[in-house]
Design a protein around this nucleic acid. Structure first.
Lengths: 219, 219
DNA sequence: CGATAGGTTGACGGTTCTCAAGGGAGGTGG
DNA sequence: CCACCTCCCTTGAGAACCGTCAACCTATCG
């Protein structure tokens, strides 16, 4: 994004946070007004079905934009919840859309963000084994955290196992067992939520059917 | 979309087809130039993984737009193949993007199309039983075909069972068995690719955990 | 110190996949 | 017109993966 658009963006941005863990950024069915870029921390998006079961749709790290999937219905189709201390920038969507008509690069940037999110669900969409899913998850998280300057393959997961399991469509017990097996086979080191990838190439091999060469930027 | 934009759109549209079954509309990794609206027939989008296994991403009926997920990478991330006789309208994306800066309603329309596609993968994303998946699939197809004036709940599937199975992440055998069971339980009538929904409310009940009240417009 | 939430481990069972074989329907050629 | 082929679909039997249930363990916090 060029300097002009940055300046124009600046006038309609609203800094929010730090939010405490558990705080909602927005809730399902609320009227859509704004998108938000995560500045620090982790945001979880999820829906709750009629039986009260939660379904995790994604985790969102710094630099990522949430709320774009609300444009169509004019209401947020999911909840967004802070997993840890979260700071973000809110952008009024009507205002940013108007601005985009004047700034083709901003328009294109928004198109790209939207387009990217379409491909993103693929991590979940395929029918993959628990091993493949968890391997892909770990690699993708490592990439996205590394992108903001963390040590390249040691990190701390900000979400509980139950959320990881839910996101990957596995039982928490299964996630726990796969973590253990990965550790036994020396693919990773784990202690609680601290993870270190010790054999990235074998992990990539496991995840190859999902990541298909080149790691995507998922939600 | 208002009249002005329709007129402007008209000058940059290219009518394509009728394509014969099996013809590619675009191929994975080809440079992205245009999006396309299906006018008649059915288009299947799919990727092929390194082992040569196909993965069906979606089916696209008349009125639906394909290619939007290529904006981000500037190359098509998937193949689009005609399943039957297909006619479509091609729109140069660079041109339509320029036009969108002059026509806020067109821009918003594009934003909405993109946003809608994000939510669409949910039919597959959840961990649902074979029954739930197939029930949801049948209802959604019925809705989308009914939207273009077909008899409300009798229709002919344009894709083979293997494609349905692949799309739903099930084995073809499983799809066959569920079809049989649905027929035995008088939820539908089937003969080959001709389907008639005879007990829509029980189907909706089965599919409720996926469709979550209000049937979405999926890919 | 006890309570609670989150995580781990084990045993068992179910849904679905795999493997294998057989049955149409439609097209082509004799 | 019929034989034959191929593609698609169906059906059955067995196995595998993962989910469910149940118990226990660990850390954190009041």
């Amino acid at each position: 994004m060029d300097k002009t658009s940055l300046k124009d963006l600046h006038v309609l941005v609203e800094h929010v946070g730090p939010l405490r863990p558990g705080t909602h950024v927005f809730r399902e069915r609320e009227p859509f007004e704004a998108i938000a870029a995560v500045r620090s921390g982790t945001v979880k998006t999820c829906v709750v079905d009629r039986d009260g079961r939660e379904q995790v749709l994604g985790f969102h790290f710094p630099g990522e934009v949430i709320g774009l999937n609300a444009i169509d219905g004019e209401r947020y189709p999911c909840n967004a919840v802070a997993l840890d201390a979260v700071q973000l920038c809110r952008f009024s969507f009507p205002q940013i859309a108007v601005l985009a008509t004047r700034l083709p690069r901003l328009q294109h940037h928004l198109f790209r963000l939207l387009s990217r999110d379409i491909g993103t669900a693929r991590l979940l969409a395929g029918d993959h084994s628990a091993d493949e899913r968890l391997a892909a998850f770990l690699l993708v998280v490592a990439d996205r955290l590394a992108a903001q300057g963390f040590p390249s393959n040691g990190f701390t997961l900000s979400m509980p196992r139950t959320d990881i399991a839910n996101y990957l469509r596995l039982a928490p017990e299964t996630v726990s067992r796969v973590f253990r097996r990965f550790r036994d086979e020396k693919l990773i080191q784990v202690r609680g939520r601290d993870v270190e990838l010790t054999d990235e190439s074998r992990l990539e091999n496991l995840a190859s059917s999902i990541l298909r060469g080149g790691r995507p930027v998922p939600t």
